[in-house]
Computed example of a mutant assay.
Amino acid sequence: MKIVYFFMLPLILLSACGQETPAPPAAVRPVSMFVIGDTAAAQTHLYSGEVRARHETVLSFRTGGKIMARQVEVGERVAAGRVLARLDPTDNRLQEEASRAQYRLAKDEMERYRELRDKGFVSQSALDAKEAAFKAAAAQAGMAVNQLAYTELRTDHTGVITAILAEVGQVVSAGQPVFHLAQTGEREVVIAIPESRLDAVKVGAPAVIEIGAAGDGSHTLNGDVREIAPVADAASRTYAARVAFKSTDASVALGMTARVWLEEAGRAQHARAYRVPLTAIFQQGEQAAVWVIEADNTISLRPVRIGAYRDEGALIVEGVEAGQRIVSAGVHKLTAGERIQPGAGGNPQ
């Protein structure tokens, strides 16, 4: 019996070698997936800014001199007409006294010449000269009084002192900035718009403003773009814009950080577009394409037309539809018909 098994064993081994070994299953590549959603041509962009006063005034003396007293501090609220600082009035007071003396002398001369003219002792032209001298002396005396009053710096508006640019003992000239005053009233948010978005932001565009530090939690207000600077900042190459809003909330203070959402008109002339990540675009020469994920998780390359490239993504205006799934990363490593395992890649905000 052992002899029979000895001869049958080679036959069993040969028959086993003739059968094909099944191939291992092909590896499934995991990829990031993006679901296309409907996106209007008007986009919303977020900007950071600072709450500022609608009217900001630089205060200065109307005459020069040495500052003898400063009566306000930064952050102090002042009422209209309040004295903020004083100059040394010595020279101005002497000038005012001299002008008054000249005024009294000219007045006496004019009255005496009027009496002489009535008696016929002087001509009319001599009286006219004295009257002209009296008017000049009166004007000079009035100017001296004004110059003495100018040694006190008063504010014309109610507001908050935001900066002090000169201190006691400093000699200032007429018109030299001494204080910055933020007037009470309207508030605005100052933001910086980059060159790439300048043509999409227009005066009057609606805005949503969020001031996170105001009160309890975030404080949301509605506003609009009031003005856009015509010239870019030399350092940042951005354009300053002011977004006006109305609020009676006292907790919205000057200098607070604010976030502004602006609705900007799309630069591509299309009513509807689809925004996708820039990493989802597969460039074939001059033709752009995306990898579309089919129902069975295989992929196919779909040519598309790009309406605009932006920082937050590309706007596809032709070639895809809302709801389709596309590969959002690693597009240059894929092949047509390949089966993939889609994962969440996240939609751009």
Rank of each mutant, 00 (worst) to 15 (best):
F245E: 04
E50N: 08
A250R: 02
K107V: 11
T184S: 09
A27G: 02
P342E: 03
R86I: 01
E56L: 11
W291Y: 11
I306A: 07
A42C: 04
I326W: 09
R305S: 15
E210I: 07
D128I: 06
S15M: 05
V145S: 09
Q283E: 09
P89T: 10
E312I: 05
D108A: 14
T220M: 02
N146P: 00
V331H: 01
S60Q: 06
V260H: 01
V317A: 04
Q283I: 00
V208R: 14
R70E: 10
R302V: 06
Q140D: 10
A336V: 10
S300M: 14
D296P: 04
A129Y: 02
I36Q: 10
A253T: 00
Q283T: 00
Q183H: 07
T57K: 10
P230G: 03
V331C: 09
Q349H: 11
D118P: 08
A268F: 15
D224S: 14
G223L: 10
G330C: 07
E286Y: 10
V260T: 03
V304K: 06
T39F: 15
I211P: 02
V78P: 01
G313E: 08
A69K: 14
A27D: 08
Q324I: 00
A336P: 13
L148E: 07
A205N: 10
A280H: 00
A200D: 06
A244E: 14
E312V: 03
V292I: 10
T155Q: 12
A174Y: 05
M1I: 05
L315I: 10
G65Q: 00
M143V: 12
R275M: 15
E73Q: 08
D296Y: 08
Q283R: 03
G37Q: 15
A132W: 01
K333H: 13
F6V: 03
K2R: 04
L153A: 03
I164V: 14
P194V: 09
A229N: 09
D296K: 06
L105E: 14
G217R: 11
R325Q: 11
A53I: 06
A250Y: 01
R259P: 02
V145K: 07
L153F: 15
A308T: 04
L59N: 02
V243W: 01
R267Q: 05
Q269C: 00
A314I: 08
V171G: 01
G223K: 01
L9M: 07
T257L: 09
R117K: 13
A213F: 12
R305H: 15
A40P: 06
L14V: 05
S60L: 08
G313T: 02
L46I: 04
T151Y: 15
R272I: 13
V276M: 02
V171I: 03
E20M: 01
T21A: 13
A79L: 14
E20S: 01
